[in-house]
Design a protein around this nucleic acid. Structure first.
Lengths: 292, 292
DNA sequence: TTTCAGATGTAAGTTGTGCTAACAAATGGC
DNA sequence: GCCATTTGTTAGCACAACTTACATCTGAAA
């Protein structure tokens, strides 16, 4: 196709609108511009073709024969284009948002809050993919990931989501340690971790607990970890949001809460633009995380 | 059709070109722009749709699935539009140029020169319609008219073509008048006119000859008029171009040459844009008339 | 008839899209 | 290794497209 001798697409679209509505004013309304703009486009086209395409007929415009021929082609062409665009858009909004996240974050932060998003956007399906590995987002069809770390994932875009909100908790009767300083130094503590909860170990290391020397027990789920800790069997690093009720009721006590600079949950996305549904979800995430 | 949520047509066209050529550079060449322009359009589209449409693959771009779908629709749409435009253009160039003109101008000015246009544009057919009346140009399918007058035709566009180039001529032996002053005052001159040559009478009146009082003989063709004048039977107003050979050879003498301010041949067109062939002819007319 | 609403016609001035220029970086053939 | 060719990205400019403003025309209602 040679675009050199095809007039401005804007002018052709204007003429198409004139042909559809039968008047300059109507076309102007359809295109959301003034009638003057449409009139100028029409005159430009006529100059380009060297032939009148429409003539005034009372109030309104009627097409010449040449105008009719052109309008027929333009109508089909633009309709096809609009159809393609519309279908692509429709497909996107229907596509579910796929979010990869750590099991801990899903359990302790997202699940208690996600109802708000469902009620706000009942038409947007959210599919949560719990997991630890940062696999290829594009290959796995994942729109965004929520990961724990220092905020640096090469080739990806990361924005901090929640501050660092872990605590070392134990049952009130657990008396082997009373401060953070004790935790790292002393052997003999019994640490419990859920198998999937890598972020707690990261945080622990960052604040000074060396699990290579201290040792830790790994359980299948965080529920089992909690039971063990409530029973006074040892220590655990838990998300504040998850243990707040226990702390309030006195079932657990917090031995340490604190920052490990930069460490926290991040929203990780590809540099590519997000799908509309994913954009909605991200906006909701930011708002809820900020208001926390 | 609602154009509000259809992205810029230029961007869509750029993406169409990318889809066709399989590369940004190729698309840029096809559209006669730089690769940067195409790249920006593509990114704009992807942001608009919130979905990647193409990804880099070595040297070149391959479309995503969404990109394929969109490209299919755009390809059809733009092809249809280009087809309509091309057909309209093709129809025009084939159309002959219809020129209405006075018989005198045709005979004495245009016919000796028109060969130049034929050789320059062998593909453009020129149809000459001799006649005097200024009928409705559009109704009669006339592209342009060459008329004699003062340059004012209401509702039409007129541009001066040739200066006023008439002369009062007579045979050398015709001695009844020697100056313009004589011509108007004296009765008894024998004036000859071709029936179709209204412009000579207009010019004559404008320079001071009152044919109502002087009287004139009307002949069927200008050839007959010339014969009569050459035979010394009387006076005639003739186009300079036509009688120059006679004047040079001494067969005729010029009694007066002069301006009748504003009076002359004009190229008269509708305000509408001209068909391409007609534009070519007009350009040629102007050049030849100016170089005269 | 006059009047009015709504249409087109056109000039002049403004604005934002779309482009270029210029550089960086990656790829593939030599 | 080099070199040609591609894509990526930014800053800045030009002009197409638009608005504003006013004039003119049409058709219907008063």
């Amino acid at each position: 196709m040679d675009w050199k001798d095809i007039p401005s697409l804007a002018a052709l679209r204007a003429f198409d609108a004139v042909a559809r509505s039968g008047s300059l004013s109507g076309a102007a309304r359809a295109l959301n511009v003034t009638h003057a703009a449409v009139s100028q486009h029409l005159r430009q086209l006529e100059a380009e073709f060297g032939e009148p395409l429409a003539r005034r007929e009372g109030q309104g415009m009627v097409l010449t024969e040449a105008g009719h021929d052109l309008a027929a082609a333009l109508g089909e062409g633009f309709t096809r284009i609009a159809e393609g665009v519309t279908r692509l858009r429709a497909r996107q909004v229907a596509r579910p948002v796929v979010v990869a996240l750590t099991p801990s974050f899903a359990e302790s932060w997202l699940m208690p809050r996600i109802g708000g998003f469902w009620t706000a956007h009942p038409d947007v399906e959210v599919r949560l993919v719990p997991g630890i590995g940062m696999s290829d987002l594009r290959r796995d069809g994942i729109d965004m990931a929520i990961r724990f770390g220092a905020g640096s994932w090469p080739g990806l875009r990361a924005e901090p989501l929640t501050p660092n909100r872990f605590a070392v908790v134990a049952a009130p009767g657990y008396t082997k340690a009373r401060s953070l300083a004790d935790l790292g130094k002393l052997r003999g503590h019994d640490w419990f971790f859920s198998r999937a909860a890598m972020e707690q170990r990261l945080w622990g290391r960052a604040v000074g607990v060396d699990f290579d020397t201290v040792g830790a027990r790994e359980m299948g789920s965080n529920g089992m970890v909690m039971s063990a800790v409530r029973a006074g069997l040892g220590l655990s690093i838990q998300d504040m949001a998850l243990v707040r009720p226990d702390l309030a009721s006195g079932q657990l006590v917090s031995l340490y809460e604190g920052d490990a600079e930069g460490l926290g949950y991040y929203l990780v996305t590809r540099p590519d633009p997000l799908a509309p549904g994913a954009r909605l979800f991200r906006r909701w995430l930011r708002r809820v995380a900020a208001g926390d």
